[in-house]
Structure formats: structure tokens, C-alpha cells
Computed example of a mutant assay.
Amino acid sequence: MDRLDIRDLPPSQRHETIHEAFDELDPGEHLTIVNDHDPQPLFYEFRAERDAFDADGYDVERRGPEEFVATLPKK
């Protein structure tokens, strides 16, 4: 899975779901998430906890008041 819309998930399940999907990626792939708020805390979490996270390739775009699309690339 390379695109994950987490807006309907309970907040307590979101980060775990994202981490699991990211871990399933092969190096060089990326995970795109759709969230209802700016995922800046997730960026810091990934940068601190996932050596395979390519922080330089991270990107986020606000597409609406409750739609943020972030790309989390894997080294």
C-alpha cells in the first residue's frame, strides 16, 4: 500500500497504522498519507525513530481545511 487515508481512523490508531505501512515499503518507495491536520509531529517522530526515513524527501501539501497530503519516503 502506498497511499493511506487515515482521516476515518481513531487518533489512537493512526501512528501505529502509518508505521506499519511504512515498514512494509521497500527501500526507495514512499508512503503517501492523507490526514485531517498538519502531520508535523509525525515527521519529527519518523525522523527520530525510523533510520530508513528520508527526511530530506518529506513533503506535505495542504489541499483543504481538513486535508493534508504528506509523502514519507524510505531510504
Rank of each mutant, 00 (worst) to 15 (best):
A52H: 08
I33W: 00
P41Y: 12
L42D: 07
Y58H: 13
A48G: 03
E16H: 02
F46I: 06
D8F: 13
P41T: 14
E16A: 05
E24A: 06
V60W: 00
F53E: 11
L25C: 05
R50Q: 08
G57H: 09
R3I: 03
P73L: 01
L9W: 03
L31M: 13
G57E: 11
G57S: 14
D38N: 15
E45T: 08
K75A: 12
L72W: 12
D23T: 08
R63P: 07
A48C: 00
D5M: 04
G64P: 04
P41M: 09
V69Q: 12
K75C: 07
R47Q: 13
L42A: 00
E16G: 03
A55N: 09
L25H: 01
Y58C: 08
Y58F: 14
P65L: 00
Y58L: 06
I33F: 00
P73E: 00
H19G: 12
L9P: 07
P11D: 09
I33Y: 02
E16R: 05
A55K: 10
L42R: 04
D54T: 02
Q13G: 01
D36C: 09
A70D: 10
D51I: 07
D2E: 11
M1E: 02
G64M: 06
Y44E: 15
G57P: 14
L9N: 04
D26L: 09
P73F: 03
P39R: 10
P27F: 11
F68Y: 15
M1H: 07
I18W: 05
I6C: 15
E29M: 03
M1K: 01
T71N: 08
H19Q: 13
N35L: 04
P41D: 11
H37F: 00
F46S: 03
V60G: 08
P10H: 14
E67K: 15
P11L: 07
T32K: 12
R63N: 15
E16K: 01
Q13T: 04
H37N: 04
A21E: 04
I33V: 01
G57Q: 13
E49P: 06
E66G: 03
I6K: 13
G64R: 04
A70K: 09
F53Y: 10
Y44T: 15
S12I: 15
R47P: 05
R14C: 14
D23L: 11
R7D: 12
F53T: 11
E66S: 04
H19Y: 10
Q13C: 02
F46M: 08
V60C: 06
A55V: 11
L25G: 05
E24Q: 02
R3A: 04
L9R: 05
P73D: 02
E61Y: 08
M1T: 10
I18C: 00
K75L: 12
R14F: 12
R50L: 07
D2I: 09
H19V: 14
D23Y: 07
G28D: 12
F53H: 12
E66I: 05
P73I: 00
L72E: 15
L4Y: 10
L4D: 09
D26S: 09
